[in-house]
Design a protein around this nucleic acid. Sequence first.
DNA 1: GTGCAAATGCAAATCGTTAGCAACAAGCAT
DNA 2: ATGCTTGTTGCTAACGATTTGCATTTGCAC
Lengths: 148, 148
Amino acid sequence: MVAKAALDELEKILREAGVRITRPRRIILRILSEYDDHPDARAIFRRAVRVDESISLSTVYRTMNLLEDKGAIHRHSFQGGPSRFEHAPQNHHDHLIDVDTGNVIEFASDRIEKLQEEIARDLGYEIVHHRLELYGRKIKTGKGAKGR
Amino acid sequence: MVAKAALDELEKILREAGVRITRPRRIILRILSEYDDHPDARAIFRRAVRVDESISLSTVYRTMNLLEDKGAIHRHSFQGGPSRFEHAPQNHHDHLIDVDTGNVIEFASDRIEKLQEEIARDLGYEIVHHRLELYGRKIKTGKGAKGR
DNA sequence: GTGCAAATGCAAATCGTTAGCAACAAGCAT
DNA sequence: ATGCTTGTTGCTAACGATTTGCATTTGCAC
């Protein structure tokens, strides 16, 4: 989902931020860039192991913390489950989670963003970050069958 | 924060839903009704133990699950911490969490609710529930000092 | 009161995540 | 290339939140 060049660029940025580019990190970074979904640590780990048998789950967790720190990825803590990650998107968006499948759909709404800021301001706060998650179920259209 | 009568009423509703009103449950229900904050299981447990030494943490957890199931309380999973609960509010609202203090401020916005439904509908979904949390920092007004 | 299913307390188990530590490897200096 | 120094790794044990198994107790319908 991300060009090779962009990956190299990211590594460069990280290196300049004092992050050593190790073999496990390179592998995780690549996996992250390929994922279009929002994988959790275990899912990343499973894929990493297929590339390098010796990678440990701890390293995945540590790397996720590091990358989150550096702003390279975002962490989402959806209802009840483990943290799920995505490579930092340039365009901010929120999430609609399909309660039946766990699938995540991204969406963005300027109007909602504006309203949020307005509300916070009225309460005397400035927003540091926010979290908007819609948990929904697919509307069955008249025609087709519906899974699950 | 809730009248005694309302508590009795709630017990009645639960009983009619097939829930046995046991001593631990009665105690927890009362604590919940008195709390104005959004306590987590441990906080509830601490208070419960002061009333009845023998109450166990498991029972608190089990009761929270039960009450959530019955719709008597809402569970919030704010960033990183344990689940926090509040007695089911009649009026829906969202939360602004003070990142410095952990304090929770409730707010409601019809316009945001409407926008959310609209967005979900456009994506082919109906909202089951949603979560909107603003994490903010108090805006320092010119005058006073600022804690922390 | 009596009986029985449901609820309790306790301890052990589970899940996601972090921490401690010895072995190891990135990246700079040589 | 080679060696150093320090950050990073894999491993295992620890952690905090929450759940579960089970023997014992307790609502509450009769």
